[in-house]
Lab assay of single mutants.
Amino acid sequence: SGNANTETLPSGWEQRKDPHGRTYYVDHNTRTTTWERPQPLPPGWERR
């Protein structure tokens, strides 16, 4: 039932692989990409 990797990503993020097989992350909220895995927001924090 779903990929465990995507469940731990913050809302709006997606994990992808480039043509060389390297994993990167897409932030659909800001339309940016990063090599660093995004950290889920700490409990009690809200994204503004």
Rank of each mutant, 00 (worst) to 15 (best):
S1K: 15
S1P: 00
S1G: 10
N3Y: 10
N3M: 08
N3W: 01
N3H: 06
N3T: 12
A4Q: 08
A4P: 11
A4H: 13
A4T: 14
N5D: 10
T6P: 07
T6C: 13
E7Y: 09
E7D: 09
E7R: 05
T8Y: 11
T8W: 06
L9D: 05
P10W: 00
P10H: 00
P10M: 06
P10N: 00
S11G: 10
S11D: 11
G12C: 03
G12R: 05
G12F: 02
G12T: 03
W13R: 02
E14T: 06
Q15R: 09
Q15H: 10
Q15I: 15
Q15G: 06
R16Q: 09
R16C: 10
K17N: 07
K17H: 11
K17F: 06
P19F: 07
P19E: 11
H20R: 13
H20F: 05
G21L: 02
G21N: 09
G21V: 00
G21I: 00
G21R: 02
R22M: 08
R22D: 11
R22Q: 14
R22K: 12
T23K: 06
T23R: 06
D27R: 01
H28C: 06
H28N: 09
T30Y: 01
R31V: 01
R31G: 08
R31C: 10
R31A: 09
R31Y: 08
T32L: 11
T32V: 09
T32K: 06
T33E: 06
T33Y: 04
T34G: 03
T34S: 12
T34I: 00
W35C: 03
W35G: 05
E36I: 15
R37A: 09
R37H: 04
P38Y: 01
P38N: 01
P38Q: 02
P38I: 01
P38R: 02
Q39L: 09
Q39H: 07
Q39T: 14
Q39N: 14
P40A: 13
L41A: 14
L41P: 14
L41R: 14
P42I: 09
P43E: 13
P43G: 13
G44N: 13
G44H: 14
W45R: 15
W45N: 15
W45E: 15
W45V: 15
W45G: 15
W45Y: 14
E46N: 10
E46T: 08
E46H: 06
R47I: 14
R47M: 12
R48V: 12
R48D: 15
R48C: 07
R48F: 00
